[in-house]
Amino acid sequence: MKFKLHIVACTVILFTLTSFQISEEVVISLPGDEVYRARMGEAGSMALFPLTEPDTDPVIIPLKRAGRLFLFDAMVDGESGNIIFDSGSKSVVLNSTYFRNRSKSVKVNSSGITGDVDQVSEITVSSLAFQGLEYKNLTVHLAGLGHIETKKGVKIIGLAGFNLFRKHETVIDPLNNELRLYRLDADGNRITKTPDFIPDEQQKIGGSGNILFLKGTIGDKQMNFCFDTAAETNVISSHSGKQVLNTLTITRRTTLKGAGQSTAEVLFGKMNDFSIGNHKITGMETVITNLSALTETYDTHIDGILGGSFLEHGTVCVNFVKSRIGISFTKENQK
């Protein structure tokens, strides 16, 4: 599928009206459907547990940023590079540029985008290791991630979400750019006595999958959001209804042109009336677009995605044993 995205490059217009403006047409080839299928493939979505762990508790994984993507260093069967921490992915996905020569099998996803032949390539790797954690003999998916590498200018060997971290309590700390993994007992309590994470807001994790959902409200309407660390901004469905859409400030619009006459309008703006629990967050950047194609694949209806713009506002703690996700909001003086 190839969309032509007409964008006028006006880099600094957001900041100054006197800037000179340069127009150009940017043609973006979108090889991403394969990536999407690989992320959402059921076949590789089982929880993975490390066979080796370092002595320290918590294990701290330093995160790096490429734009608003979170990356960590890893080694997969001798190939080193960055892995994107992608909480919106059910599976581990490796970049076909570096792993295409492995023997692979093709699996059909049990759920997928209607009408597509929803296949995903699978390979087995002996070892995935980072920060003293090592996972052995994993079945992972394969997809071309070269377009992300090119845009971000860093070597990306793969992406991985919570199926690596279900055994631990995971704290995503964007302020300090780290993931902290705490060991848990059978009841989901921290084994090593460390001060517990004190959430300002806590919600129950629904379902048994690796993808998490958060309930929030916009304009008094309750919304179901996918929590996705690989989304650089938030997203709101254009079908969210008047009471939601009327609250947004729109600062940008573009039109994606698909095959034939079909077009998809995408808006960009700010969320002025978002609350989660008792906490109100204003000014978060968001994309507004039609998410109906996406909603089907989550096995649940979603009204939007909370991504990079949301993570700027707090620390998130995920405990699969207790089925709890908590958020501690960053106080102004911590920023």
Binding site: G32, R68, I113, T233, G258, N290
Partner: peptide, 20 residues
């Protein structure tokens, strides 16, 4: 007008990257 296309997730990521 947004109902016509149905923007898939990879395209969304590309857009976000552009806008970032």
């Amino acid at each position: 007008g947004m109902a016509d296309g149905g923007t898939g997730k990879p395209q969304l990521y590309d857009l976000m990257d552009q806008w970032m």
